[in-house]
Amino acid sequence: MNVNFDSALTAAHAAAAAQNHPTGTLYVVATPIGNLADISLRALHVLSLCDTVACEDTRHSQTLLRAYGIDKSASNWLALHQHNEAEASEEVIRRLQSGQRVAYVSDAGTPAVSDPGARLAWQVQSAGLRVIPLPGASSVTSLLSACGTPGHDSSGFIFVGFLSSKATERGHAVELLNQEPRTQVLLEAPHRIEALAAALGILGDRPVTVGRELTKQFEEIATVPAKDLSAWLSGNAQRTRGEFALVVHAQTQVLAESSDNDRLLKILMQELPLKTAVKLAAEISGEAKNALYNRALELKQASAG
């Protein structure tokens, strides 16, 4: 698909040129995970403004920037990836100390989440230099925003990323996932997705949302029980292609039937607001607060009826 971004680049300069973009600063720039139109105006302006673009793959990032009408000479590029991050970070620091603006981009998405960049940002800050983030696309937040969650789940999420490619280590990691009640986000490559799906089968009926090829032409998002994930993948030959993000949803908290818990809640609710009663009941009984809150609502509705 041929897209002309000339007007976007003009708009980017109009929108961001008046803003302060200090020299001697590292700009951590999020780039699209698929759809080129997901770049921000601020990112376009800074990428055209900066003296050096540090990146995972110079050829990939050169192609990306040229799609937006930004062309840099060879001296403006610096390869910085997982195999040379420590050494290349020292070169970034030298360029920053000379007064350059340096942008860092990963191959796609937000740097330092699962891609390189975290060590770079740490070393730059440790050297007393400034790091400015330019937010944008992320497969993690994109899928979380679309997959939904039960209204009572306010426990947040855990970013897990890629599990080990070794079967034994991957199996152990999934056992730990099973013990964690909160929502968890995983990433996976196409050549390993079937092995991951098979491993996640031990989670049984726990819902898993799969995001495949997010923001791209053949984007697909589906929620299935973990035990059915392998069958879902095999249901269509296209489903094992592309990059994957997966959300393992929070476990449904079920409060064991207990006349003692009900009696405790009823007594506390007679004297205290519902949230305060639940908080105290959780401290006294050791039960999960969310489960007690849901039970308190049931008891309140029953008494009202």
Rank of each mutant, 00 (worst) to 15 (best):
L143P: 00
V124T: 01
A79V: 15
E175N: 13
S139C: 12
V102W: 05
V113D: 01
R101M: 11
T141A: 08
G117C: 08
G161F: 12
G109L: 11
H83I: 05
G69K: 09
A108Y: 06
L176H: 13
L134G: 01
P190H: 06
Q82Y: 06
S75E: 15
A103G: 05
Q97F: 10
P190K: 06
T168Y: 12
A121C: 14
F162T: 02
L187T: 00
S164D: 07
A108R: 01
T141M: 03
D107W: 08
L129Y: 00
S164R: 12
L176P: 01
G99H: 07
V131N: 01
S164P: 09
Y104C: 03
R101D: 09
E188T: 12
N84C: 07
W122F: 10
Q123D: 12
T149W: 01
G117S: 08
C147H: 03
I70L: 12
A108K: 04
S89H: 04
P181N: 06
A146P: 08
A79N: 13
V113P: 04
P181S: 08
P133I: 06
S89C: 12
I93E: 02
V92Y: 04
E169L: 15
T110D: 02
I70M: 07
R192A: 14
L78I: 11
Q82T: 13
A103N: 02
V105P: 01
Q184W: 07
H81N: 14
Y104V: 07
S139P: 11
E87D: 15
L96H: 09
L163W: 02
P190Y: 06
H191S: 11
V174S: 01
V105H: 04
G171K: 12
F157D: 01
I93K: 03
V105F: 03
K72F: 13
S138L: 02
P116F: 04
S155P: 00
T141G: 03
I193W: 00
D153S: 07
A189Y: 05
S145R: 04
R95C: 10
E169M: 15
R101Q: 12
F162Y: 15
A112E: 05
E175Y: 14
E180L: 05
A137S: 13
S98L: 14
V105R: 01
S75C: 08
V124F: 05
P150L: 10
P181D: 10
R182V: 04
I132P: 00
P116V: 08
P135E: 05
P133M: 10
F159S: 07
G151I: 11
P133K: 06
F157M: 02
A189F: 09
V102R: 01
A108M: 09
H152L: 02
S142W: 09
N178A: 15
V131K: 00
D153A: 08
P111N: 04
H83D: 08
R170T: 14
